[in-house]
Design a binder for these strands. Sequence first.
DNA 1: CATGAATGAGTCTTCATTCAT
DNA 2: GATGAATGAAGACTCATTCAT
Lengths: 207, 207, 207, 207
Amino acid sequence: MAEIRLSRRERERLRHRKEILEAALELFSEKGFHNVSMLEIAKKAEFATGTLYKFFENKEDLYKALVLEQSEKFHNALGQAIEKPDDEVEKLRNFVRAKGEVFRANVSMIRLYFAETRGASFNIMAGLDRDIRERYGHFLETLASVFARGMEKKRFQEIADPYYLAVAIENLTNAFLFLWLEAPDQHPYPDDPDIILNILFKGLLDQ
Amino acid sequence: MAEIRLSRRERERLRHRKEILEAALELFSEKGFHNVSMLEIAKKAEFATGTLYKFFENKEDLYKALVLEQSEKFHNALGQAIEKPDDEVEKLRNFVRAKGEVFRANVSMIRLYFAETRGASFNIMAGLDRDIRERYGHFLETLASVFARGMEKKRFQEIADPYYLAVAIENLTNAFLFLWLEAPDQHPYPDDPDIILNILFKGLLDQ
Amino acid sequence: MAEIRLSRRERERLRHRKEILEAALELFSEKGFHNVSMLEIAKKAEFATGTLYKFFENKEDLYKALVLEQSEKFHNALGQAIEKPDDEVEKLRNFVRAKGEVFRANVSMIRLYFAETRGASFNIMAGLDRDIRERYGHFLETLASVFARGMEKKRFQEIADPYYLAVAIENLTNAFLFLWLEAPDQHPYPDDPDIILNILFKGLLDQ
Amino acid sequence: MAEIRLSRRERERLRHRKEILEAALELFSEKGFHNVSMLEIAKKAEFATGTLYKFFENKEDLYKALVLEQSEKFHNALGQAIEKPDDEVEKLRNFVRAKGEVFRANVSMIRLYFAETRGASFNIMAGLDRDIRERYGHFLETLASVFARGMEKKRFQEIADPYYLAVAIENLTNAFLFLWLEAPDQHPYPDDPDIILNILFKGLLDQ
DNA sequence: CATGAATGAGTCTTCATTCAT
DNA sequence: GATGAATGAAGACTCATTCAT
C-alpha cells in the first residue's frame, strides 16, 4: 500500500520532470540557452518557476540535464547501428540511416546537439562540455575502429587515417542534416545511404 | 585643406572603429555573444561605453558588423583560392591550403565563423543570418561549379551531386580545423592538402 | 478509555511540538531568524514542512513561541534565585550564580535571549517585543526591589537609584556571559559571584 | 582645467555615495538588514537600483561599508575622550559624556552598533565581524589600561581585573543608552556622568 | 495529523542604453 | 566625438505558505 503510494508520487515526479525537460528542449533548441528564461520554460511546461528549481539546481543544471539525456539517447541509437555484427560497409550504411532516423524523429534535438558538439557553446558550460565531448570522442573512436577493421580485412583501401575517416563521415552526415534542416524539400536527407557514402566509397580521381 | 582635415578625422574615426572591432572579436570569439558586455569591450578597446554607441547602433549591430567584416575577409581569401585559373584538382588543393592559412592566422575568427554558419547562433540575429548565409550559399555554389566543371572535363568521376561535394569539402576542412583547434599538437591541420582531399579523391572501395 | 486515547494523542502532539521547537532553537540561535528556513527546521525535526503549520500559524509564530517559552524558563529560574528569603547580598549572589547556571546549560538560548532583549531584533516582531519586554521589565523591578530593600535595611549604601542598580547587575552579568561565550577558556564565567559583584560591592574610590 | 573637471566628478561621486549610505543607515537601523530591500534604499536615496551597484558590490558590501564607517566615527570619538592626558577619573567621566553625546547625535547609529557588537548579527557577515570586533577589542584594551594606570597610581582600589572593569563600564553606559532609547523622557541619559560612574566609584557595601 | 509538491510574490543583481557634460 | 554616471527593465532564484492525498 505504502509502496504503491510512494510509487505513484515517484511516477508523478518523473512525469513532471520529463514535462519540464520537454518544454525546455523545445525552447532551447529554438532560441538558444541565453534567450530562454526560466519563466518561459515554466509557463510552457505549465508549472510555476519555483517548481523548476525543485527538479534542477539552476538554469544551467536544467540545460545540462537536457543535453546529457538527449545526447545519451542519440549516442545509444548510433552506437547500436554500428555494433551490429555486420560487414563494415553495412555498418556505415546503418550509421547513416540511423542518424537520419534519430534526427528526423527529434528535430529539436539537432540544434542542441550541434550547439554542444560544435564550438557554439564555447566554454559557457565547462563541466558539461567535458562529459559530452568525452562521450563524443569515445564514439568517434568506435567509428574509427570500423574503418580500421575494414582496412585490416582488405575491405577498404587505406586512403586515410581511420580516425580522420570517422571524423569525415560524422561531418558529412551532419552536413546533410543541416541542409535538410534548412530546406527540407530542397535537400532531403537521402533514404539511400550510398548517396552520402559514395563520397567516401568511390573516389573522384579513380577510374 | 578642409578636405585634408576631414580626411584626418575620417582616418582617426576608422582607426577607432577598427580598435573596437578588434577588441570585440577577441572577446566574442572567446566567450560568445551573451557573455561579453559592452563595458568589457569598451575597456578592452580603451574607450568609454558611450563611445561604442557612436560607432554602432547597439550591441547586436556591433556584433553584426564584426561578423560581416570577418566573413568578408574570409570569403575573399577562399574565393581567390579557387578563382585562379588552375586545374580543378589544383583549385581544391588551393582551397584546402588557403582555408588553413586564413584560419591559422585568425584563430579567433574561427569560432565566430562556426558559431554563425553553423546553427549555433540560432535565429538570435535574424538579419545577420540572411546576409551571411547568402554569401555562404553563394560561395558553396562557386565551389560546386569547380566540381561540375571537373566532371564536364572528365577530370572527376561523377560520384555525387557537385553541390553535395562542395558541402562535403567545406565540412571536411572545417572538421580538420576543429580537430586542430582543440588539440593543435595532436591534430595539426595538414600542410599537404591531399591528406584531406584523398578522402574525396580516392575511394574506399575502389581497387 | 476515550480519555486515555485523547491523552495519548495529546502527549504525542506535545512531544512533536517540543521536537520542532528544539530543532528551531538550535537553528535560530546559530543563524538568526532570517537565515533559517522552514524546510530546514522541518528536516532537523524530521517532519514535513506542512506539519510545522499544524503547530504554528507561520514562521513568526513559531519563533515567537520559541522565544516566549525560553524566556519563561529563564525568568523563572532567575525569579526563584532572588525570591528565596535570603539576605540581600545573598540574593544577588544567587542571581549571579543562577544566571551562569541557566545559560551554561542552555547555550543556544543565550543568543536568542540577547537578540530579543537587546535591540537586535528591531521591531521585526512587534507583538513579541511587547510580551517579552514586559516580562523583562517586571523582572528588573523585582531586582530593583532587592536593592531598595537592601538600602532600607541599611545593608547597602545609596549609591544609585535601585532601578539603575538592577539594570547594572543585569548588564554586568550579561557582559560576563558574552565574554565567556566568545572565549570560554580565556574568560570563564566565575564560580565565585563576588568576582562580578565586587564591581558593585566595593567602590573604586573608597578607601 | 581637466583637474577641476575630474575633481567635480569625483566630488559628485562621493556625495552620491554618502547619500546612499545615509539612506541605508536610516533604513537598516530602523528595520534591520534583512527587512530592507535595495529598491527601498535606492528610492530613499533617489537613485535607481543599478546605481547602488556602481558604488557597492552587493547589499552585504553596502551594509559592511556603512557599519565600518559608522563604527570608525564612533570609536574615534570615544578614543579621543580617554586619550586626553587627564586624571583617570576624569577620563572615565569624559568617556561617559562622549558616549552620550555621540549617540544622542546619531541615534540611528546606535542600533546598528549594538546589532554588530552584540551577537545580534550572528555570523551573517563573518568578514565584517572580524574587523569590527577587532577594533572593539582594541578599544576595550585601551579602556582597561585606564583602570590599570589608575590602580598603579593608587587612584583606584583594586576591586577587579582592569579588563573586566572596562567591560563593565562599557556595558553600564550601553545599558543607560538603551533605557534612554526606549523611553527618552523616563530615562534620560544623565548629563552628570557620576550618576552612572558612582556604581563603580562607590561601593554598595562600603561604609 | 502528516506529507511534500506546487505556488508565485519578492529580491538581488546585471547590463544595454541614454544623456548631460 | 568622448565620457561615464545613471537608468530601469529583465531575469535568476528563494522560500513562506497552501492543499490534495
